[in-house]
Amino acid sequence: MTRHVLSMVLRNVPGALARVVVLFSSRGVDVESLSLDPTERGDVSRMDVVVGLPAGRSPDQLVKQLSRLVDVKSVVAVADSARNQIGA
């Protein structure tokens, strides 16, 4: 299992969070932590998720699948090294 950090911007509409979480569930993604925060713009929220993927599975596919969701405005996989720096 490898850990990856996803940083996303979601539309502030009912059901947006559910759609993201169901995608994790349908695609067999382990969620380690999840935080959702308002932004200065009222119409979007920021979401940070730490996910676990089976060894050898890159987060690229997951990023592309999340990008398909209408309510996901942007999604990036933050590099592990960057996360380590944040953690340090």
């Binding site: 009912p14 059901g15 559910a18 759609r19 169901v22 995608l23 569930s25 349908s26 398909r68 969701l69 209408v70 309510d71």
Partner: peptide, 12 residues
């Protein structure tokens, strides 16, 4: 909610 994983999008 039921249709979440089987639709491109759902509006209410």
């Amino acid at each position: 909610s039921i249709s979440l994983p089987i639709t491109k999008h759902a509006f209410q």
